[in-house]
Design a protein around this nucleic acid. Structure first.
Lengths: 139, 139
DNA sequence: TATTGTTATACTCTATAACTATA
DNA sequence: TATAGTTATAGAGTATAACAATA
């Protein structure tokens, strides 16, 4: 099975997620929540559907995810003045502090991966190859 | 998010699985079933728990999977003479023909990935990097 | 006592349809 | 009519506990 790209990709992804999940167990943060906070931190004010789409999450499933972040006081929905149907998403001050902590935990996790891969060049090579599969324009 | 190994790995895995699933839609074969048939074909006679463990599937969840393959006449459980608790797994003759077809469909899928990656060397490089993450001894 | 296969069950993710309020 | 957010729901995939038969 080691010659099958999809299989090995899946096993590697599960391994990396396992490390990720353990890293964030204390913060009670799951991968999807991490990604939502990261996106909001980088570009505040986007509406739900925009963020869900970027992450490949169905907007229906995004609701409960965002409910959780809002209940924890990390992010908030604001009624958009221009379009009263939509919510623009922002971090709370506490959410901004949380993201700082989260980023530092993530760096440790990423550092562990770099060591396994054999250095930063290997990580860059992996990101490049994955980007080719995805046809990523920012590659 | 493009700089986060786990995230990009996940997206790439989903993309590859999507192509895989579409490739095998006509054969009504899911990734887990593919992997079980491939393992049985390569090493017939192993018992359920051994195969499940190799694939990272819990033995409880393996039961329904194997039920399905048996119901379709592709694989079968044989009572092991030495240990009457265990089942040794084998392909049926129809299962063997199915695996041939399956392998050729898989090759097309894999060929598509190689093109995206930019050639067989790129695929080899990707498998190597993923193997490093997994600490794969057969790398 | 321990292990193999099994059942039952629960939890997370994901996918779809249909509703409401706005546009 | 169409869109943003929402609700309800169903299907995978995965995890654990407990049981019967056998070791």
């Amino acid at each position: 099975m080691g010659e099958i790209v999809g299989y090995k990709l899946r096993r590697a992804q599960l391994f990396v997620f396992q490390d990720f999940i353990e890293s964030f167990a204390k913060m009670k943060l799951r991968p999807a929540e991490f990604s939502v906070l990261a996106i909001i931190a980088r570009t505040p004010g986007q509406k739900q559907t925009e963020i869900a789409e970027q992450l490949g999450i169905k907007r229906a499933n995004f609701v409960a995810l965002m409910d959780g972040l809002e209940r924890r006081g990390l992010a908030e929905r604001r009624k958009a003045a221009t379009d009263k149907r939509s919510h623009s998403l922002h971090l709370t001050p506490e959410g901004a502090r949380f993201v700082d902590k989260m980023t530092s935990v993530w760096r440790n996790h990423e550092e562990r991966l770099i060591e396994r891969l054999g250095g930063p060049e290997a990580r860059a090579a992996l990101l490049d190859l994955l980007g080719r599969l995805l046809d990523d324009p920012e590659r």
